[in-house]
């Protein structure tokens, strides 16, 4: 039994071919959607086109270079305060960004004659930055007296629309939502 990884085009076209070949009238496709915030994606590894969305609060010299906060800001998703010049993603530790971008991992799969065909993709949360009044932690509040609110940049990480997580498949395909996929590698594993 093998597990074959496909890209989007291959996955959709494989299903279309199966339907055309009349191997079966219906095909069952499993879909797993999981929310992750495991520091897999950080600001340093983002392409410029994506990084620019964060550019009002942080800066870097280029791709895979260290990222620093330009201004103090609050990461609303993680409820965390970052001071100006604080490092957000170090070039020497790319695998462990301090500011982690959450994402949905979407996995579509179907099985045919014991083999599994999988297409996986991650959908990043979308940033939005605004200025709002917030009370910042006393121990890092060097700007004002304690217990006062101040205007500060606020980073929100918004979850993507459910429709963007979907792959539209013909009505002959039944999509089942699953929580976990247990992959059976050999018959002894039963």
């Amino acid at each position: 039994m093998a597990v074959y990884e496909c890209n989007e085009q291959q996955f959709i076209e494989n299903i279309a071919r199966l339907l055309r070949s009349n191997v079966s009238e219906k095909i069952i496709v499993n879909r797993k959607v999981m929310l992750y915030d495991d520091h897999r994606y950080g600001l340093s590894i983002l392409p410029e086109q994506e990084f620019i969305k964060y550019s009002s609060i942080c800066e870097r010299k280029g791709l895979k270079k260290s990222v620093y906060a330009k201004v103090p800001f609050i990461d609303e998703f993680h409820n965390k305060f970052y001071d100006a010049n604080e490092i957000l993603h170090s070039a020497s530790n790319l695998s462990m960004p301090r500011l982690s971008i959450p994402y949905y991992r979407v996995e579509y799969s179907f099985s045919l004659w014991g083999n599994s065909y999988i297409y996986t993709f991650d959908v990043l949360f979308e940033p939005s930055i605004r200025i709002g009044k917030r009370r910042i932690p006393t121990k890092v509040n060097k700007y004002r007296n304690k217990d006062t609110s101040m205007l500060i940049h606020i980073l929100s990480l918004n979850q993507p629309n459910e429709r963007i997580l979907e792959i539209k498949l013909p009505k002959e395909v039944i999509v089942l939502d699953v929580k976990r996929m247990l992959r059976v590698v050999g018959s002894n594993d039963y």
Partner: peptide, 26 residues
């Protein structure tokens, strides 16, 4: 209708979703 940043095959993509009634194109 919507767009998002997607990572697949170790590459970053901008995915745009266009709709017209029941029909949709990403």
């Amino acid at each position: 209708e919507d767009e998002a940043t997607v990572v697949s095959d170790g590459r970053f993509w901008r995915r745009m979703l266009f709709t017209r009634g029941y029909e949709c194109v990403s």
